[in-house]
Amino acid sequence: NIFRISADLSHLASIVILLETIRKTRQVDGISLKTQLLYVLVFCTRYLDLLTFRWTSLYNTLMKFFFIGTSIYVIKLMQECKIKNPVAYKDMMARDTFQIKYLLGPSAILAMVFNYKFTILELCWSFSVWLESVAILPQLFMLSRSGKAGTLTTHYIFALGLYRALYIPNWIWRYYTENRFEKLSIFTGLLQTALYSDFFYIYYKKVIKGGGFELP
């Protein structure tokens, strides 16, 4: 449906914007390495079903490989910056101080409690949706502490937030057309979108209406 395809395109766009940001600035200014590492973990645990070869569609499989591949590629690019621009890299690391154990631990516990089946694949899948819902926090934390962000970085976060927000009408659509109701995706999706809501508001006020981007 239209919401699902727009969501996936917005997700693709966010990654293109992120890669463009790193490529253009040749440094990692404003990008949280911790959030990016969490995304690698999110995609690797969610798409374990690639190993079972029970694929749903070519689209699905290609997208899964794309998201795993690009998330690892982002880490590689960031590590290159460490060599090329060690001062900027150190500066980023000094500001990237969110304790991710507070995200990893609860996600693991929630996955144990809320899952569709107590199997490795299902537990990893559930862990990945819980973790994805909070994975942006180190990035938002970094932004709110520095108070300022580059335009490309804000576009990246916006596109990334929009992706999960668009999944919500997609779930409503699928509920009415397919009688499908996936409670875990829906709940974590709502949580994820809620975490972005403050950011969306500031983005709307500052970026759309002109002017710089500053977080309180």
Binding site: R4, T56, S57, E178, R180, F181, E182
Partner: peptide, 10 residues
């Protein structure tokens, strides 16, 4: 019947 156990989303 509500179906949930197919992870066909990204």
């Amino acid at each position: 019947e509500v179906n949930a156990l197919t992870h066909d989303e990204l």
